[in-house]
Amino acid sequence: MAELVEQPLLMVGEGWDGYRLLDSGNGRKLESFGAYRFIRPEPQAMWQPRQGDWQADGEFLPGADEDGGGRWEFATRLPEDGWPLSWNETRFTAQPTPFRHLQFFPDMAPVWEWMRDRLSEREDAETLNLFGYTGVGSLALSRHGKVTHVDASKKSVAQARENAVLSGMEDKPIRWLVDDAGKFAAREVRRGNRYDGIILDPPKFGRGPKNETWRLEEGLPDLIRDCRQLLDEGSSFLFLTVYAVRMSSLSIAGLLSEALAALPGKIEHGDLAVRETGEDGRILPTAIFARWSNPR
Rank of each mutant, 00 (worst) to 15 (best):
M1A: 14
P8W: 03
M11P: 09
L21P: 12
S24I: 01
E31L: 14
S32C: 09
S32G: 09
A35V: 06
F38R: 00
I39S: 02
E42F: 11
E42L: 12
Q44E: 13
Q48Y: 07
Q48T: 13
G52N: 13
G58S: 07
E59S: 14
L61D: 07
A64K: 15
E73A: 13
A75Y: 02
A75K: 10
P79I: 02
D81M: 11
S86N: 07
N88W: 08
T90C: 13
T93A: 09
P96H: 03
R100Q: 15
Q103C: 11
D107P: 11
M115N: 07
G137N: 06
S138Y: 02
S138T: 03
L139R: 10
L139T: 05
A140M: 11
L141E: 02
L141V: 01
H144Y: 04
H149D: 03
S156D: 14
V157F: 04
E162N: 12
N163A: 03
N163C: 02
A164F: 00
V165F: 01
L166F: 01
S167N: 06
G168E: 03
G168P: 05
K172N: 12
I174E: 08
D179V: 02
A185S: 12
A186M: 13
R187C: 12
E188Y: 04
V189S: 00
Y195L: 14
G197T: 07
I198P: 10
I198V: 14
I198W: 08
L200N: 11
P203R: 05
K204F: 08
G208S: 05
K210T: 08
W214F: 09
W214Q: 01
L216N: 03
E218I: 02
L231Q: 11
D232S: 01
D232V: 00
E233T: 06
G234L: 00
F237R: 00
L238S: 05
L240Q: 13
T241Q: 05
Y243E: 11
A244D: 15
S249D: 08
S251H: 07
I252T: 14
I252V: 15
A253R: 05
G254N: 09
L256N: 15
I267P: 10
L272Y: 03
L272A: 05
A273M: 14
A273S: 15
A273E: 14
V274C: 04
E276W: 09
T277M: 09
G278T: 13
R282E: 15
T286S: 12
A287N: 15
F289T: 06
S293E: 13
S293Y: 05
R296L: 03
